[in-house]
C-alpha cells in the first residue's frame, strides 16, 4: 500500500516508535521508515510521505514539520473517534489488528484513484528532455534547444527519475535505447 513511500516517526518513546515501525513494515511495505527523537529533521526527512508524531511534539513543532506532508498523531487511549479537524489520530494502546485497520483506513483515504498515481507514463515534454539527456547533452544545452529555462529542465529531470526509478545518465540512456526513444547512432 505504501510501496515507494518513506515514513518518518518523530517520537521520544523508543518502544512506541519501534513497534509502529515494525507494524508499518510488516503490513504496508513502505520503502523506508526512519525514527527520530528530534524535530531537527535530516536531509531526507523533507521527502517523507508521512510523518507520525506525538501530540506533544505536534503541539510545539507543528510549523517545523515538513510542509505538505501528511501528519498522523499517535495518541494513548483518548481521541479514538475521527478528529473533527487536523491530522488523523491512531490510538497506540489498541490491539495490533485494530491499529493495522486504522492505519489502512488512513492510507486508503489518501490514495489517489488508480491511473493517476505518481508512476504514470512520461509526458511528451519529459520524453523530449530524456532523448536529449540520453544523447549526451547537459542541462544548459537542453534548455537552449527546447527554449525552456534551466529550472524547468531540472524539474523535468527530477520527474523523469521519479517515474522511471533511474538516476544516472547512463541508466537513462539505456532506458531510451531499450524503448526506442533514440537509436545507438544518436549517442555522442
Amino acid at each position: 500500500m505504501l510501496s515507494g513511500m518513506t515514513i518518518l516517526i518523530l517520537s521520544q518513546n523508543t518502544l512506541e516508535a519501534a513497534g509502529l515501525k515494525a507494524i508499518l513494515q510488516e503490513f504496508f511495505s513502505p520503502q523506508r521508515v526512519r525514527i527520530s527523537e528530534l524535530v531537527a529533521v535530516g536531509p531526507h526527512d523533507h521527502e517523507a510521505d508521512y510523518v507520525f508524531t506525538t501530540p506533544e511534539i505536534f503541539a510545539v513543532h507543528q510549523t517545523q514539520l515538513p510542509a505538505r506532508r501528511r501528519v498522523v498523531i499517535l495518541t494513548r487511549g483518548e481521541g479514538t473517534g475521527p478528529a473533527q479537524e487536523g491530522p488523523p489520530v491512531v490510538d497506540v494502546t489498541l490491539p495490533q489488528a485494530q491499529i493495522v485497520d486504522r492505519l489502512e483506513e488512513i492510507f486508503r483515504r489518501d490514495e489517489r484513484p488508480a491511473g493517476t498515481g505518481d508512476r504514470e507514463d512520461l509526458t511528451v515534454r519529459e520524453m523530449d528532455v530524456l532523448r536529449l539527456v540520453a544523447r549526451g547533452f547537459i542541462n544548459k544545452q537542453i534548455a537552449d534547444k527546447l527554449s525552456i529555462s534551466l529550472h524547468t529542465v531540472i524539474s523535468h529531470r527530477k520527474n523523469i527519475t521519479r517515474k522511471l526509478g533511474i538516476r544516472t545518465v547512463s541508466g537513462l540512456t539505456m532506458y531510451a535505447l531499450l524503448n526506442g526513444l533514440i537509436s545507438s547512432k544518436d549517442i555522442r
Binding site: G165, I166, R167, S170, G171, Y175
Partner: peptide, 19 residues
C-alpha cells in the same frame, strides 16, 4: 554514491524495462 546509483539503475532496468 555514483557507483552505487549505477548498480541500482541496472537492477531497476532489468526488473522494469527488459523486453
Amino acid at each position: 554514491h555514483e557507483v552505487d546509483e549505477k548498480l541500482t539503475d541496472l537492477k531497476n532496468i532489468l526488473i522494469k524495462y527488459i523486453g
